[in-house]
Computed example of a mutant assay.
Amino acid sequence: MTFDPLEQRGIPLDRQVRGWRELNVTPIDPDASDPYTRCRVITMNGIEVEAILFSHQLARNTVDPEVKRGLAEVRYVEAQQQKAVNWLLPGVSSVLETTIAYEQVAVDLTSWIARMEPDPYLRQAYEFGVLEDFDHLYRYANLYEMIEHRKAEAIVDGLTEVMPGRPTRMHHRHPFDNVRDPYDKAATDPLSKLHALTVLSAEQQTMNFYMNTGPTYMEPIARQLYQEIGLVEEEHVTHYESLVDPGETWWEQLVNHEYNECYLYYSFMEQESHPKVKALWELHLNMELEHLRIACDLMRRHDGREPEEVLAPQLPNVLTFEPNKEYLRELLATQIDLTTLGAGYVREAHERFEQMQQRLHDGERPPSDRVIDQHREMFDRDYRQETEGPHPVASERA
């Protein structure tokens, strides 16, 4: 690949604001579209939300009114992009159907990034987290069949398996043990920075979604399951955000955000099968190229450095949504019993972990276990969808 966003010119900023007719996108048809189209939509919504939140935080930490105004102008366009992207989701989908799609994103996005990650420590962080998202997909799939009497297969379409991962009850750790060691901004591969920002943005989006949608259900088990998994997502955001070097300046972070948006829009444009969605990815890419140029100018002015010092010279291989079944089965066979201790990983339960488990569960089965119990009472089985035969390790992890 030879696409270098630093050498490309995008749409001038004063031509990027769209009227209502342009923002009124037609949502995708969940029954006719590639499930990975929906995954790309969900991913880019998370990326745009992170871009908006980061811009607000930067604006709150600068005294320069000119910078504040410039950030506000770009941020308004980012907000329009977020609306156009997120409004692609079909209104006919229930909250739980969207939840299952969110977890499909978490599983296949994080798996692909783990496979491509050059840093062994960062790769382990993604491998650890993905086995927990994998189990969340399984728990929600059982809830979906109980409440809506439909199977998650209709959503994931055989691309992502549905079966137990690391049991959700084991995800509750002492907060100290959710903090990882950061990468070194001066030594790490630029691709690693993009990976960390992408997974952080996706998990942050999921955390926010569960915090706000969980109490909208009437069924007690649904409300309780969203509450439990919502707490795990908070752990995941802590886990991933701590990987980022806190020594990165605001301007380094800004150019990384804008470069990552170019990378992802380009990646998704290259693989998108839906013509109208592909056109939106291309439009937003051309907007982001200008946002990146503006960010680079701010970095030169306020950091006194060239963006080439921190960014990749050209885009890496396109980030791809694809099945990761064999990879996940290997992780299930080798890492399902891991937990964290300090910034590392261990196989044995330790005092802090056991104390946290006791404080939360207090001898009771958590919602993530009870949803499986209730499903078995209703159907005489749990719900799982394994496309390549039963796994020797994960046959009974509920």
Results as ranks from 00 to 15, higher is better:
residue 71 L to V: 11
residue 72 A to I: 00
residue 72 A to V: 04
residue 73 E to Q: 03
residue 74 V to H: 07
residue 74 V to W: 15
residue 74 V to N: 05
residue 75 R to L: 13
residue 75 R to W: 11
residue 76 Y to G: 00
residue 76 Y to H: 08
residue 77 V to K: 03
residue 77 V to H: 09
residue 79 A to P: 01
residue 79 A to R: 02
residue 80 Q to W: 02
residue 80 Q to S: 12
residue 81 Q to E: 14
residue 81 Q to R: 12
residue 82 Q to I: 00
residue 82 Q to E: 13
residue 84 A to I: 01
residue 84 A to H: 07
residue 84 A to P: 04
residue 84 A to E: 15
residue 85 V to R: 14
residue 86 N to R: 14
residue 86 N to V: 10
residue 87 W to Y: 07
residue 87 W to N: 15
residue 88 L to S: 14
residue 89 L to P: 01
residue 95 V to W: 08
residue 95 V to H: 14
residue 95 V to M: 13
residue 96 L to S: 04
residue 96 L to D: 02
residue 97 E to D: 13
residue 101 A to S: 10
residue 101 A to H: 12
residue 103 E to L: 02
residue 103 E to A: 03
residue 104 Q to L: 05
residue 104 Q to D: 09
residue 105 V to N: 01
residue 106 A to V: 03
residue 107 V to P: 02
residue 107 V to K: 03
residue 109 L to K: 04
residue 109 L to Q: 14
residue 112 W to Y: 15
residue 113 I to C: 08
residue 113 I to N: 00
residue 114 A to E: 02
residue 114 A to D: 03
residue 114 A to I: 08
residue 116 M to R: 15
residue 116 M to C: 11
residue 118 P to W: 04
residue 119 D to F: 07
residue 119 D to R: 04
residue 122 L to H: 09
residue 122 L to T: 15
residue 122 L to V: 15
residue 124 Q to G: 06
residue 124 Q to V: 06
residue 125 A to Q: 10
residue 126 Y to E: 01
residue 127 E to K: 06
residue 127 E to V: 01
residue 128 F to Y: 15
residue 128 F to P: 05
residue 130 V to P: 04
residue 131 L to V: 00
residue 131 L to S: 04
residue 132 E to H: 07
residue 135 D to K: 13
residue 135 D to H: 09
residue 135 D to L: 10
residue 141 A to E: 07
residue 143 L to K: 01
residue 143 L to H: 06
residue 143 L to T: 07
residue 144 Y to I: 14
residue 146 M to K: 12
residue 147 I to G: 08
residue 150 R to D: 13
residue 150 R to N: 10
residue 150 R to W: 07
residue 150 R to F: 05
residue 153 E to P: 00
residue 153 E to N: 06
residue 154 A to N: 13
residue 156 V to T: 11
residue 157 D to P: 00
residue 160 T to F: 14
residue 161 E to V: 13
residue 162 V to I: 11
residue 162 V to F: 02
residue 165 G to I: 02
residue 166 R to P: 05
residue 168 T to K: 10
residue 168 T to G: 09
residue 168 T to H: 08
residue 169 R to Q: 15
residue 169 R to D: 12
residue 169 R to S: 13
residue 170 M to F: 14
residue 171 H to F: 08
residue 173 R to N: 07
residue 173 R to A: 12
residue 174 H to C: 06
residue 175 P to N: 09
residue 178 N to L: 07
residue 179 V to L: 02
residue 179 V to T: 05
residue 180 R to M: 11
residue 180 R to E: 04
residue 182 P to I: 05
residue 182 P to E: 06
residue 184 D to T: 06
residue 185 K to C: 05
residue 185 K to T: 06
residue 188 T to V: 12
residue 189 D to R: 09
residue 191 L to K: 15
residue 193 K to Q: 14
residue 194 L to D: 03
residue 195 H to L: 13
residue 196 A to S: 12
residue 196 A to N: 05
residue 199 V to D: 02
residue 200 L to V: 09
residue 201 S to T: 07
residue 202 A to I: 03
residue 203 E to Y: 00
residue 205 Q to R: 05
residue 205 Q to M: 11
residue 207 M to E: 05
residue 207 M to K: 12
residue 207 M to T: 09
residue 208 N to A: 08
residue 210 Y to A: 12
residue 211 M to A: 12
residue 212 N to E: 14
residue 213 T to K: 12
residue 214 G to C: 02
